[in-house]
């Protein structure tokens, strides 16, 4: 009799523990042992099966109240950078491209022996070109809307290029590609869809080679150094 009661008590305690763990069983973050215990328990416990179903339902219901989030991070990011730039203490003694820390220097991206801009555009072309993504800030030719102005670089002299693409791209799409490659959109698109971008030509590559490599990329309609 005592043995039955002990067994029952242990089972009840395990049942309570499983009930507490179910949410993390559902999000697949339990350890192997915990997960095995839950799976075994679920095979025989109707109450826990019901709780699991209720939690799935609750998750679906709560996700139906997705809070509205602004898809375009850029305006918020600019606000934050303005805050940072207005507080010298937040930038003191540091360069945005500092390599003073050897550990950091080691992890910085290499400038591979293809042109930076070519890699930028390759990255860009790998992105899904969303036709529904309407170009932003279209202004008449020659009157660029400044999008970013972070142009400092210790890697070499920054060059400004005017780039046009066969398909219209949104500034956001282009910017997302540029972030990964440490280039900048200076302005654009203008009325003809041209962007003014700032890139650093890798050492050992002539300006002409650089432009040729850019122009040879499918999707790039024209590339020229800005006057």
């Amino acid at each position: 009799m005592k043995s039955i009661m002990t067994h029952s008590s242990a089972h009840s305690q395990q049942h309570e523990e499983i009930l507490l763990l179910l949410p993390w069983y559902l999000n697949d973050t339990l350890t192997g042992n915990e997960r095995t215990t839950v799976v075994e328990h679920l095979k025989t416990c109707v109450e826990c099966q019901r709780s699991r179903d209720e939690m799935q339902a609750m998750q679906l219901l709560v996700s139906s109240t997705e809070t509205e989030t602004n898809e375009d991070y850029w305006p918020s990011f600019r606000k934050l950078m303005n805050r940072i730039e207005q507080q010298p203490s937040l930038q003191a003694g540091q360069s945005s491209l500092s390599t003073a820390n050897p550990a950091v220097a080691r992890i910085r991206p290499y400038w591979v022996p293809v042109s930076l801009a070519a890699s930028v555009i390759f990255a860009l072309l790998l992105l899904p070109l969303s036709q529904t993504d309407s170009p932003v800030g279209v202004v008449p030719k020659g009157q660029f809307a400044t999008l970013t102005h972070d142009s400092e670089s210790s890697e070499g002299i920054a060059h400004r290029l005017e780039l046009q693409f066969d398909q219209p791209l949104s500034a956001q799409t282009l910017r997302a590609a540029f972030i990964e490659t440490r280039s900048n959109i200076v302005s654009g698109p203008d009325a003809e869809g041209a962007y003014l971008v700032e890139v650093v030509i890798p050492e050992g590559m002539s300006d002409a080679e650089f432009l040729r490599s850019l122009r040879s990329i499918e999707g790039v309609r024209s590339a020229a150094f800005a006057p």
């Binding site: 602004n70 991070y73 360069s95 491209l97 003073a100 950091v104 972030i179």
Partner: peptide
């Protein structure tokens, strides 16, 4: 984050892009 520690604005922007949606939600 190591790059952000050296005041690398490009790295910071990459981190911001990653976290903006999930922090907003």
């Amino acid at each position: 984050l190591e790059r952000v520690a050296t005041r690398d604005k490009h790295a910071f922007e990459q981190l911001y892009v990653r976290y903006h949606p999930q922090l907003s939600r």
